[in-house]
Design a protein around this nucleic acid. Structure first.
Lengths: 132, 132
DNA sequence: TCAATCAAAGACTTTATTAATCTATAATAG
DNA sequence: CTATTATAGATTAATAAAGTCTTTGATTGA
């Protein structure tokens, strides 16, 4: 079990947008270059962030992406959910008689992790930033 | 990102072994049947649990698997690590100048989940069990 | 209006991982 | 010695992740 690379790209892009000037949009070209990934691929990832209402996009010359919410209103979990989806990490596919005890514990464990990620906002990292 | 089915089979098998008589080994045949999975496949999974010292195996007639440790000394995390490995869920593959802040937070979040799973012992579930 | 610029979308390919099977080998009880 | 049971390795099949290519649509500015 691993987080996808797409999640890594999304998190880094968001962190970059947070640290950038908030008014001028930044093109995928530049964002992709910084991370060593192809623009078309990153573009697909960013579209998910747009649909999740974390960033907004502008077409045409001088277009690009910029934050849609305030730094302190964007959590790690928001970004991760936008990319990975919100389904539970664990599904018991067996058909038991009763509700699966194992499933219940696994879900609760996951909740612990998500709680941490939800409390971790972009604003918190922005301060600690150096170059990237 | 999903836990593998193998992890589900491993957890259920362990829970069954916990609830079974501790002295007579149980064959993979029976264990596999209960979960609707092929014996050879389950066997591979159980071999990992053997190598992790959670259960022990006996070949030959009347052989099979049984717990190697006490219920209260086997955690969810032990089982999960045996199957999924112990590598971090998140790897930042970008080559930054500095240590990756994102990585640090992701690792900490994971630690929250693992802490819960480590404290959750087989003995705790054994009491709540009904049929499976 | 036209050309340049940029995002969105869909089809497609490649690669990696997970899930599962098959077959052969080794150990052990009776 | 034979039936039973675990272990190991090779192999295949299925699914998911990663990435490319090409077309379409929106927007700006000359």
């Amino acid at each position: 079990m691993k987080y996808s690379k797409a999640t890594n790209y999304a998190l880094h892009t968001m962190l970059y947008l947070v640290s950038a000037a908030p008014n001028k949009p930044i093109g995928v070209q530049l964002l992709a270059e910084r991370q060593g990934v192809s623009p078309t691929y990153l573009s697909k990832i960013l579209t998910k962030l747009v649909k999740a209402d974390l960033i907004e996009s502008a077409s045409g010359a001088n277009g690009g992406y910029r934050l849609k919410r305030k730094q302190e209103e964007i959590s790690f979990l928001d970004i991760i959910h936008a990319i990975e989806g919100t389904a539970s990490l664990f599904d018991c596919t067996l058909n038991h008689s009763s509700k699966c005890l194992i499933q219940q514990e696994m879900v609760e464990a996951e909740r612990q992790m998500e709680q941490y990620l939800q409390n971790k906002k972009m604003s918190e990292l922005a301060g600690k930033m150096t170059v990237d």
